[in-house]
Simulated scan of single mutants.
Amino acid sequence: MEVIELLKELLKFRSITPDDDGAMNYITLFMNEFDAKLLEVNGVKNLILTKKFGDGAHLCFAGHIDVVPPGQGWSSDPFEPVDKDGYIYARGTQDMKSGVAAMLQACKDASSFDGTLSLIITSDEEGDGIYGTKEALKYLQEIGELPEFAVVAEPTSFNKIGDMIKIGRRGSINGVITIKGVQGHAAYPSKCINPIHQASAVLANFAGYDMDAGSRYFDPSKIVITDIRGGMEVCNVTPNELKIMFNIRNSDLTSYEDVKQYCEHIFNGLDYELTLKESSKPFLTDENSKIALNLKSSIERICGLTPEFSTTGGTSDARYFAAFGVPVVECGVVNDRIHAVDERVGVSEVETLYRVFSDLISNFNSVN
């Protein structure tokens, strides 16, 4: 089977998070020369495929089979792949069944490798992501088979296949500050405690504030206010409280504790409550690590261009590999239509990605 044929088969599964719709069974049969372990946790299926060729390094490819709901307005059935003008249209073409197809086909076709090849495929990346890749890695750690290097086949390219490798991701911290006041008549402000007035005195040092100056691969960790609300939408009553919601996509230079301390500094003296939630931690893989250098070399050979190392974008399951101490990079197709109506991927992109992964496997030990 060729990689495009495999991709079309994967696209037919209505694998909306966390339902794999039978895709895991299909993949297990397709990868029949690999040892398979299906790990199901709270309704989430995680497939671990392993094949040992030798005693060298353990290289893992990872991705998710689940997709977001298709939504309305498609030009064709989102779960019936359509070929048109060099593209394949269907939900999940870019995010990320193209990456899954490329890594599956490359590993299946590998005739030799000085070490162990494995794949982790989850059905819970587009959802909460807490019972997916994280649980698979926990299991592998428990049995002493944690991979030494990893590639997550997320759609990372910007304009052209291979032009960007993600070597890290920013973290994400959500916050809610509720400033308490005393409601009253607007005509008698001295009898009220107006939380809006109190907040206005400090917001200039909070809204849009850079928690750090950024670094070579990370933009500054900026406080971005996403919502402010309070009051009863009338002109003659001051509010009882004011709620400010914000998000920080933080680099490795700013921690959860840094954010907490800054909030306490800014709102000191006010009657307020602070809630912070860290949904993901930032990570950065050394650009000179074996996995980064090998993947860069493979892209240069196959694509004829030098990829940019980047940390842009949201979160991905690569963060879980980093949390387990596994050097990880991300590489995939162009991501201009992820989660969109009429999502599509270029046929040539998928074929090129397959060749990149195959080259990486063949030459993994050529760069130290």
Rank of each mutant, 00 (worst) to 15 (best):
A187K: 02
G208P: 10
M211N: 04
S200C: 07
F218E: 06
N174M: 10
K166H: 10
G99D: 11
S157V: 02
T226F: 06
G181W: 11
S200E: 09
D109T: 11
I173F: 08
R170Q: 02
N159K: 15
F113H: 12
M96R: 03
D227M: 13
F206P: 04
G115Q: 08
L137W: 00
I165S: 09
T122G: 05
E126V: 04
G99Q: 12
E233C: 02
A199D: 07
V234C: 14
V202H: 10
L119F: 09
I143L: 10
E233D: 13
G115W: 07
Q105F: 05
L119Q: 05
F206N: 03
D212W: 05
G214H: 00
P147D: 07
S221C: 15
R216K: 15
V152C: 07
S112F: 11
C192I: 09
E126W: 14
G175Q: 03
S98L: 12
E154D: 14
V100G: 04
R229P: 01
D212S: 03
V176H: 06
Y89K: 08
L146C: 12
I161R: 00
I173G: 11
E148C: 05
G99A: 06
T178P: 02
I161F: 00
I161P: 01
K108W: 07
I120C: 05
K108R: 14
R169K: 12
S111N: 13
Y188C: 00
F158K: 08
K222H: 11
A102N: 04
V224D: 10
I167F: 06
G208D: 09
M164P: 02
R169Q: 10
N205A: 13
E135I: 00
R229M: 03
Q105E: 15
S221A: 02
S200K: 09
A187S: 13
K134T: 12
D128G: 15
Y188Q: 13
N194T: 05
E126R: 04
F206L: 11
A186E: 03
D95E: 10
F113Y: 09
C235W: 13
G171K: 02
V224R: 14
G132H: 06
D163L: 10
K160T: 15
G231R: 14
Q183P: 06
T122I: 12
A213K: 12
H185E: 02
V151Y: 04
I161L: 11
Y217C: 07
V224W: 01
Y188K: 07
A201E: 15
V100C: 11
I121A: 10
I223K: 06
I196L: 02
A102T: 15
L140I: 11
C235F: 15
I120K: 01
D109I: 12
D128A: 12
V202M: 08
D124G: 08
V182D: 00
P155Q: 05
K191Q: 12
A110F: 05
A187P: 02
Y209S: 01
R91M: 15
T93R: 08
V182E: 07
A153L: 00
A186K: 04
